[in-house]
Nucleic acid binder design. Structure first.
Lengths: 178, 178
DNA sequence: TGACACTTACTTAGTAGTAGGTTAGTGTAT
DNA sequence: ATACACTAACCTACTACTAAGTAAGTGTCA
């Protein structure tokens, strides 16, 4: 397979693993077996695990940029756009998964320095996105923190208490903005 | 050292590790070196890692019970009691730590079955505690979920964005109940 | 009182399995 | 001929867990 396709394929699988297991707990061994390659082959494309982690963070940032473009073009009430952002973010996360940014945050103290910086960057970018979509609302930066904390906290709760929790949270977050 | 003291000491250190690293990523090796024992000695007190995990869950439940007794006896506005509960929960969590229940939830899919059950139990107990303290408030069970999700999501964010986030969240959660 | 059986709380030295990472070499397309 | 995409075979370090042994005590008999 050609270089760019294979790299993309590896990043994609790594992202799934991170959403399911977190960054520290997924391994090149699991990844390689799923992709039908050897560990050494993944090391060929991403010399260190941290290089792959950085590539995943890059992909997350690109995803946020694309979502913001899509939402800004949408023909809906501007007051609904922040909620639409959360809805779209959720749509990328399966029932047994958590938000990949949360997963990186959970492992944060044990990440290599360069990856910490990348995680901080994408974290602040996401907070900035929501704050921007709330720009006409009072105290929009604090509200962005509340919305994202609650959403991601609830995703973690879902693992132990089941899926209904997401509807409960979504409903309350909508009410909060009215 | 006598049996009960040593057991307590091991549970205490394990709890700190879980708050810092999560359940899957802390090891008997780290734990034993900190306590000045061997790994085998910890296995003597807790045959398997999952036995130690269960003991930690038990301790968390006992802690919740004691907090509820303390809060019910406090001479404050009943409407402030849920916020006081959150404040007390936070006081047990250092700056570089997350909520231990969140830590177990993050590792949930990879926990042994018996430990999953224990984590579910303590999770539901905590939700029940907050709902009980909110009993005079409309939609108290949904509100309990919102309060705890936001608090714990924010603790995770704190690792990447710094400590100020907790004041922002606390302030908004207080406003939410007025 | 003292010998004997037994327990507690540990240690040393290992097991098998998995982690991230490396090195040298192979097949293939241009 | 050369660069690319890969594999086989390794290495060191760390994981949970175990086997075997030991020093210091405890309880119970004659």
């Amino acid at each position: 397979m050609d270089m760019e396709n294979r790299k993309e394929q590896i990043i994609e699988r790594a992202l799934v693993h991170i959403k399911k297991r977190g960054y520290l707990s997924f391994s090149y061994d699991h990844l390689s077996k799923e992709l039908g390659l050897t560990k050494a082959s993944i090391h060929y494309h991403f010399e260190k695990k941290e290089s792959l982690g950085l590539a995943v963070c890059d992909r997350l940032e690109t995803g946020l940029d694309q979502m913001m473009i899509a939402i800004k073009q949408m023909d809906i009430d501007p007051k609904e756009k922040a909620i639409e952002f959360l809805r779209m973010r959720l749509s990328y996360i399966d029932l047994d998964e958590i938000c990949p940014i949360s997963a990186f945050q959970a492992d944060f103290p044990y990440l290599p320095e360069i990856l910490k910086q990348s995680v901080q960057h994408v974290t602040n970018k996401e907070l900035g996105c929501v704050a921007e979509l709330l720009k006409d609302i009072h105290n929009n930066e604090a509200k962005a923190i509340l919305l994202l904390s609650a959403l991601k906290g609830a995703l973690q709760y879902r693992r132990a208490v089941g899926g209904e929790i997401m509807e409960t949270i979504s409903k309350q977050l909508k009410e909060l903005l009215q």
